[in-house]
Amino acid sequence: DGVAVLPAPQNLSVQSTNMKHVLTWSPVIVPEEIIHYSVEYQGEYESLYMSHIWIPSSWCSPTQGPECDITDDITATVPYSLRVRATLGSLTSAWSTLKHPFNRNSTILTPPGMEITKDGFHLVIKLEDLGPQFEFFVAYWKREPGAKEHVKMVRRGGIPVHLETMEPGAAHCVKVRTFVKAIGRHSAFSQTECVKVQGEALPL
């Protein structure tokens, strides 16, 4: 193949948003050749008790693209070491290891999408389905001075959930944030959305 030694992938990093974790690296370039990569990981248990053991990633051993969705591999809130190597036929590069172990508690949490509807006097919310890790902290209130804010925990996204029965003529407002049990963190609140019985959603 005209390639004596295959260089190891460089610039490993993890992008993590809403508990979806993607490992990326700079591709290894060999003209007119297709390079494959293998990704492996070690949790804290492995590095403490079994330091020689690395576990092949669920989806990227091997893979072609210079990235790997490691979400299914990161299943505890502990530091994970990650490494990648390139292969071309029988040639394999050295392992390249992520400089700092990745912990899912560093994931970026964004406010969830929500859809507010009404069925007659009933205020109904449908939240973005972000997966089983997410619960939703929904705050809702009647838009009038001194109104009391109510709170409801919604355990699952993707299905319409009844929030409250609205009084005719009053605007009712809702905002929501996510909560991730596994890391004990929540996102910022979403935009507030208001709706009035027999009226359309009102701009703020």
Binding site: G43, E44, E46, L48, I55, D73, T75, A76, T77, V78
Partner: peptide, 13 residues
């Protein structure tokens, strides 16, 4: 190994 690792690492937490 994957399931084993999930249990072991969560027990460590």
């Amino acid at each position: 190994l994957k399931s084993f690792s999930t249990l072991a690492n969560n027990f460590i937490v």
